[in-house]
């Protein structure tokens, strides 16, 4: 029963954590724009979300009584698939950060993070109004 209430929130929380992780990776790329030999990385969001969704089904809390509630674990994203970004203009010092691309990705990811937050908020509001029934 509780799963129906929180099922959608689970997906959204995975998504939010992944967005936060990707935000970090993009920040690292922007920080290392002048480091020789640095190779820009990124997270494949679709693959990582699939990965996280599949993993949660394996890790359940152990139940010693029939009356225990079933909760899926929300620990998510260890080993999210990383990839190297495609280099558009090779540079002499071996650095593969394309600053314009990274900034665009960063802004894009920030907006998606915020929209996920709004989804969560509206979901909570819906649940609360269902619970209070007013």
């Amino acid at each position: 029963m509780l799963e129906q209430l929180t099922g959608r929130l689970d997906t959204l929380s995975h998504s939010l954590q992944l967005r936060a992780a990707r935000q970090q990776v993009l920040a690292s790329n922007i920080a290392n724009v002048d480091s020789p030999g640095y190779v820009a990385q990124d997270i494949d969001f679709n693959a990582a979300l699939q990965n996280a969704m599949n993993r949660t089904t394996d890790t359940r809390l152990s139940q010693t009584s029939q009356q225990h509630l079933q909760l899926t674990s929300t620990s998510a994203l260890i080993g999210s698939p990383m990839a190297y970004t495609v280099q558009t203009q090779p540079s002499l010092d071996g650095n593969s950060v394309d600053l314009d691309q990274q900034r665009a990705n960063f802004a894009d990811n920030a907006i998606r993070y915020e929209s996920t937050l709004r989804f969560i908020n509206s979901n909570v509001k819906t649940m609360l109004s269902a619970i209070t029934g007013q």
Binding site: V25, S28, N32, S35, P36, Y38, D42
Partner: peptide, 16 residues
């Protein structure tokens, strides 16, 4: 100055 990437604790993150 010569910069160098400083790998962080999380995968894919690096300071300078």
């Amino acid at each position: 100055v010569l910069f160098q990437a400083l790998p962080g604790t999380d995968p894919g993150t690096a300071g300078v």
